[in-house]
C-alpha cells in the first residue's frame, strides 16, 4: 500500500486540470517513483496522476526532418523502432541499457527525463541530438531545449500544472556518426557509474565539421562538454585528437564520490569512455561518407 491518493487522467485536457493540484505527481512507468515512495524519499502529500490511458502520448513520428517522440513511449518501444535505428542508434543503445526487460517495458522516455537523475541514460544521446522538449499546460505550450530542462538532481524546469508532452530532435545530417557508452558495476540491471554519448559530423574531407559530446553521472545533471566539442570541431579525427578531447572534457564535468565510484575514477573513466565513443562514432561517420 502506498501512502497517496490516485487520480486517473482520461485525457490530456483532464491531465492539465488535475495537475494544478500542488501535490500532483505524474505516474508514468512507475519504475522510479514507486520505489522512491516505498523508501519515503519523496515528499508528501502525494497525489499520483495515472496517465496510463493517454495512449496519444505514445508515438515515434517523423515529419519534415524532425522526429517527435511522445513522452509516454516506453524504452522497449524505442529500442525496436526502425526509425530510431536509422536516425538515432545511440539513443537506442542508451535505452537498451536501462534496467531490465521488465523496467524497459514500463519505463518511459518522458519519465526518464522528468526523473532528472544525473545517471538518466537517455539524456546524453538526446543532448547530442540537441533535443527540445515540449511542455504543455491547460493554457500554454512551450518548447525548451533539453539542456535547459533538467536543472539539478531530480529537478526540472516544469512549472506547476505543466507536463512533458513530447521530445523533438532533427534527423541528423549525412556523414554523421553517433555512439553511446556506459560503464556500470555489473552487466545486468546496471546504473551508470559514468556514461557518454557523442555525435560527430564529417565534412567531405573527413574532418570534423560538427561535434557534440555529453556525459551522464558526471555532474549534478547529464551535461554537454563544450570544451571537448570545441577541441574536436574543425579537426582531423585521430587517436591523438580524441585524447585531447578527453583532456578538454575535464573542465566541464564535475563528478562526485559515491557508493558506485570515486570522483577520481569517474574523471578517469569518463575520459576512457569518451575516446572509445569517439572512435566508434568516427567509424560510423566514415562509413556514412563512403
Amino acid at each position: 500500500m502506498f501512502d497517496c491518493e490516485v487520480n486517473v487522467a482520461k485525457s490530456c485536457t483532464e491531465l492539465t486540470q488535475i495537475l494544478i493540484e500542488p501535490s500532483a505527481r505524474i505516474l508514468a512507468g512507475g519504475t522510479d517513483i514507486l520505489p522512491g515512495m516505498r523508501k519515503n524519499s519523496i515528499g508528501k502529500p502525494i497525489t499520483l496522476i495515472d496517465v496510463s490511458q493517454l495512449n496519444e502520448l505514445s508515438y515515434i513520428r517523423e515529419h519534415e526532418g524532425q522526429i517527435d517522440i511522445g513522452a509516454l513511449t516506453t524504452h522497449s518501444k524505442l529500442i525496436t523502432s526502425p526509425l530510431l535505428l536509422q536516425h538515432a542508434p545511440a539513443l537506442i543503445d542508451a535505452c537498451a541499457s536501462i534496467g531490465s526487460t521488465q523496467t524497459r517495458n514500463r519505463g518511459t522516455l518522458g519519465g526518464n527525463l522528468c526523473n532528472a537523475s544525473p545517471a538518466a541514460d537517455s539524456v546524453p544521446p538526446l543532448l547530442c541530438l540537441e533535443a527540445v522538449v515540449t511542455l504543455s499546460s491547460h493554457d500554454n505550450q512551450r518548447q525548451v531545449p533539453l539542456s535547459d530542462f533538467i536543472i539539478g538532481p531530480g529537478r526540472t524546469c516544469l512549472k506547476q500544472g505543466e507536463y512533458l508532452d513530447h521530445i523533438t530532435f532533427a534527423v541528423p545530417q549525412k556523414h554523421t556518426g553517433t555512439s553511446f557508452m556506459k560503464l556500470g558495476r555489473r552487466n545486468g540491471m546496471s546504473i551508470a557509474v559514468v556514461s557518454t554519448s557523442v555525435l560527430l559530423r564529417l565534412d567531405q574531407q573527413g574532418n570534423i565539421e560538427y561535434a557534440r559530446v555529453a556525459f551522464g553521472s558526471a555532474a549534478p545533471t547529464p551535461i554537454c562538454s563544450h570544451h571537448a566539442e570545441a577541441a574536436l570541431t574543425g579537426k582531423t579525427p585521430s587517436a591523438q585528437l580524441f585524447s585531447e578531447a578527453a583532456q578538454a572534457m575535464r573542465t566541464d564535468i564535475n563528478p562526485i564520490d559515491d557508493l558506485r565510484a570515486s570522483r577520481e575514477y569517474r574523471l578517469h573513466s569518463a575520459g576512457v569512455l569518451l575516446q572509445r565513443a569517439l572512435q566508434t562514432a568516427w567509424h560510423q561517420a566514415e562509413m556514412d561518407l563512403r
Binding site: R186, N187, G188, D258, L259
Partner: peptide
Amino acid sequence: LKSNDQWINCFTEYLLPTSLD
C-alpha cells in the same frame, strides 16, 4: 556503510550477479 551512516540494504546497491554477470 554508506556516507549517510546507513548500511547498504537493498538490491539496487547490494549487487548480486545477474544472468549477464
